[in-house]
């Protein structure tokens, strides 16, 4: 799938590798997890906790909680507030969070 957003050519920041459901993704240093996911071209829709319908980030500024992801084993984190780090393990959430994750 082509991504909805693309980096402008002037963006020359170095890339770093993160993993999305185990798949390698090249993200740019300084991107938030949510931005990196939207630029990845992967299907990164999560399923909502209430009825399981698909959702993607909406506000990108920390208020809507639509960007919730599991990061390094911890669920329901706001992907739009957390910068990517090398080797980060990101999981797309399916419904409610699991206890212990």
């Amino acid at each position: 799938m082509t991504p909805m957003f693309s980096h402008i050519p002037a963006d020359q920041r170095p890339t770093l590798e993160i993993f999305v459901d185990g798949q390698s993704v090249q993200a740019r240093r300084g991107d938030t997890v949510a931005a990196a996911l939207l630029a990845s071209g992967l299907d990164v829709r999560r399923d909502s906790a209430v009825s399981g319908v698909p959702r993607l980030p909406y506000c990108m500024m920390g208020v809507c909680f639509e960007c919730l992801v599991t990061i390094n084993g911890v669920g329901n984190r706001q992907g739009c507030l957390i910068p990517v780090e090398p080797g980060m393990q990101v999981e797309i959430q399916r419904g409610k969070r699991e206890l212990g994750k």
């Binding site: 957003f5 920041r13 300084g30 938030t32 931005a35």
Partner: peptide
């Protein structure tokens, strides 16, 4: 408005400023 692909304009501006990301579709 809850469909994936519907976002705020502010969200797009955030991505533009902090990540140099612009809509391409």
């Amino acid at each position: 408005w809850t469909l994936p692909g519907v976002m705020t304009a502010g969200a797009a501006q955030t991505m533009l400023k902090s990540s140099g990301l612009v809509p391409s579709e």
